[in-house]
């Protein structure tokens, strides 16, 4: 029983990270109808920025609440800027081109980032590019046991609770942003038809850039919580998580924010149970099998809706 409970906690904890990454994925897709394959790698860049900030602050300062918040703030701003650049110079010129073009560009950016960050480049004592090896991520959230059951049979850590809270909180905030604010209305209008949105005075380029920056900042936040969980940072971390988060977003119905969170938690649990009760080699096969099963029953994902296309 304890074992089962611990598996549930492990699964939710993994799912939480997928959820945080999937939120940004699904939001960018919702507005741009672009599967931003570079999302996970933008996340990775954010983690490295966070790493650098925590390193500069030093162990003492980085573990304080303001220190940790500063790590998040700088990483998220840096990724927002990166997101802006990617959108401005890679995606915007291709907006009127067939969608496949942007998709392939996205994959290209993904590779450029994940392999670019494996290069090793230092100017005197300053590391500019980090090199391929994994590094230990500083403990910006001091781990504390939040709940212990039995004789340490089940342990829930404070950072697991914080991550889960952040994921649910962000989902709610984003949902409010998209459905209750003027910017959100503009996002949805641009999502449907950016030409018509322009006719209404909506600055389409700015809305798209804004969405991208927001998505990238979210990725950075998610990445830092991920690094807190796994305590390490390495250039390929974004690819794997990005792929899983993408699957989660599709399971939940891509473009749908609560769907992304539910899909991610389900995926996390599903993977955990597969590894816990069968064998680890089955993990990805079952995860993708789950995706296919969901899509067969609900082609638009769990929460996705068919959009009647009236002319």
């Amino acid at each position: 029983m304890y074992k089962f409970l611990q598996h549930v906690i492990n699964g939710l904890s993994a799912g939480t990270i997928y959820a945080l990454v999937a939120l940004g994925y699904t939001m960018v897709y919702g507005v741009l109808k672009l599967i931003n394959f570079a999302h996970g790698d933008v996340m990775m860049v954010g983690v490295y920025v966070g790493y650098a900030v925590a390193f500069l602050l030093g162990r003492e300062t980085a573990t304080t609440v303001p220190g940790a918040l500063l790590v998040f703030a700088v990483a998220m701003s840096a990724c927002a800027a990166l997101g802006f650049l990617i959108e401005r110079f890679a995606y915007r010129p291709l907006r009127e081109k067939p969608r496949l073009t942007s998709l392939i560009t996205a994959i290209g950016i993904s590779f450029a980032l994940s392999y670019g960050f494996q290069l090793d480049w230092a100017v005197q004592d300053w590391t500019i590019l980090p090199g391929a090896a994994a590094r230990r991520f500083p403990q910006i959230i001091e781990p504390k046991e939040w709940l212990v059951l039995g004789d340490s049979d089940v342990i829930i850590w404070n950072w697991q609770v914080i991550s889960f809270g952040v994921a649910v909180g962000l989902m709610t905030l984003l949902q409010l942003l998209v459905f209750k604010t003027k910017f959100g209305k503009a996002m949805r209008a641009v999502s449907h038809d950016h030409r018509v949105a322009g006719l209404l005075g909506i600055p389409v380029d700015r809305v798209i850039a804004g969405t991208f920056m927001l998505g990238s900042a979210l990725a950075a936040g998610a990445g830092i919580l991920y690094a807190v969980k796994d305590k390490s940072v390495q250039p390929l971390m974004g690819m794997f998580v990005g792929l899983k988060a993408f699957v989660a977003a599709v399971i939940g119905g891509i473009g749908n924010l609560p769907g992304a969170v539910v899909g991610a938690l389900l995926l996390g649990l599903c993977e955990e149970f597969v590894v816990g009760y069968t064998a680890s080699s089955w993990r990805d096969a079952v995860a993708f099998g789950f995706l296919i099963a969901v899509l067969l029953v609900r082609p638009a994902g769990l929460f996705g809706k068919f959009q009647p296309e009236k002319v």
Binding site: I35, F111, V247, V250, I254, L295
Partner: peptide
């Protein structure tokens, strides 16, 4: 959604040989 499913399925397959040149300029 089928397109998405396909691309999802295609990725892990190509994933293990991403670095083998698959002809795409990016890789």
């Amino acid at each position: 959604s089928w397109l998405l499913a396909l691309s999802v399925l295609a990725l892990p397959l190509s994933g293990c040989e991403k670095k083998k040149d698959t002809g795409s300029g990016a890789s």
